[in-house]
C-alpha cells in the first residue's frame, strides 16, 4: 500500500527551503502511518463477547415485549 497524504500545495519559496518542505512531508507521512497503525491495532483485536451478547439479549427483549 502506498502512503499518500492529502497535502496542501507547497507554499515555500523556491530553492532555500524545499528540502525542509520535503522533510516536513516525510515526517507527516510517518505520523500518518503510525496513526493508522495505532487505530488498526484496536480494530484487529478480537471483539469481546459482551458486544454480541448485548445485541442478542436486546433483540430477544424487543421481540418478547411486542412493542
Amino acid at each position: 500500500m502506498v502512503v499518500t497524504m492529502p497535502d496542501r500545495p507547497s507554499r515555500a519559496p523556491k530553492g532555500a527551503s524545499s528540502s525542509n518542505v520535503e522533510e516536513a512531508r516525510l515526517r507527516q507521512q510517518a505520523i500518518g502511518v503510525k496513526l493508522r497503525q495505532m487505530f488498526d491495532q484496536v480494530v484487529s483485536e478480537p471483539v469481546p463477547d459482551e458486544f454480541l451478547d448485548i445485541l442478542r439479549r436486546h433483540d430477544k427483549k424487543a421481540s418478547d415485549g411486542q412493542d
Partner: peptide, 24 residues
C-alpha cells in the same frame, strides 16, 4: 453490517476515552 463495524467503533471509542473499559 453493524457487527462488522464493531471493531472500528471500538477503535474510535478508544481514541475518545483513552480508558479501554470506558471505551468499550
Amino acid at each position: 453490517d453493524l457487527v462488522a463495524l464493531i471493531p472500528h467503533l471500538r477503535a474510535f471509542a478508544r481514541t475518545l476515552c483513552g480508558d479501554a473499559a470506558a471505551a468499550d
